[in-house]
């Protein structure tokens, strides 16, 4: 089970109403390498992986939900007072027709989130390597969004999220080493 803390993991500030940027950012909300996919991927893999790495998947999967909340806040701030006209100019006309200014789990081109974005192969090595790849892809996505954004306050939050992907990748690489270790060589108390 989870406890909820009613605050963001890192403060989110947005300087200007910019629905165009929201359209790009939604990739990290409902895209293949976004935060929703990450959280669901890790939490679901926990059941069929050696005990030594279950805790890591719980911790990182939980943190991904905290990131999802930050992205949601960014998208919300960027679009909440945008007029239908502004939404249309930002390439969000189709989104507006379907959802008004509501958030939706979709990628930057409007494709709804699908479970086929994530994997649970059951093979611990395959699953952990998928997680490492997912973290690197999320890091890259943040880079490309930062490259297209000229909002320094929003970029501050995005750089924080990018750094967390770096840390997660490192932890999953350590998990791979744990899975590779010979049993019986080291005794843990």
């Amino acid at each position: 089970m989870w406890y909820y803390e009613k605050k963001l993991q890192y403060p989110v500030r947005v300087r200007e109403c910019n629905p165009r940027l929201a359209k790009f950012l939604i990739e990290q909300y409902g895209g293949a390498d976004g935060e929703l996919a990450a959280a669901l991927r890790y939490l679901n893999q926990r059941y069929s992986i050696p005990d030594k790495v279950i805790g890591l998947l719980t911790d990182i999967g939980t943190e991904e939900f905290a990131h999802l909340e930050m992205i949601a806040t960014m998208v919300y701030k960027l679009t909440k007072d945008a007029t239908p006209e502004q939404m249309k100019e930002a390439g969000l006309g189709a989104h507006y027709v379907n959802h008004d200014n509501a958030l939706f789990y979709e990628n930057a081109s409007g494709t709804p989130w699908t479970a086929s974005y994530i994997q649970a192969k059951g093979d611990p090595i395959a699953d952990i390597y998928e997680d490492i790849a997912a973290e690197e892809k999320a890091r890259a996505t943040y880079q490309w969004i930062i490259n297209m954004s000229d909002d320094p306050e929003l970029n501050d939050g995005l750089k924080y999220l990018r750094e967390r992907e770096v840390v997660h990748s490192q932890r999953f690489r350590e998990a791979a080493e744990i899975l590779k270790e010979e049993r019986g060589k080291k005794v843990y108390f």
Binding site: P50, D51, K52, D123, P124, I125, L179, E182, R183
Partner: peptide, 21 residues
């Protein structure tokens, strides 16, 4: 590699005590 997953006293199927990958 082998590992011993947690086994609950109330598991419905006969538990496989040692699993491998």
């Amino acid at each position: 590699k082998f590992y011993t997953p947690y086994v609950s006293p109330t598991d419905p199927c006969p538990p496989i005590r040692i699993k491998s990958y």
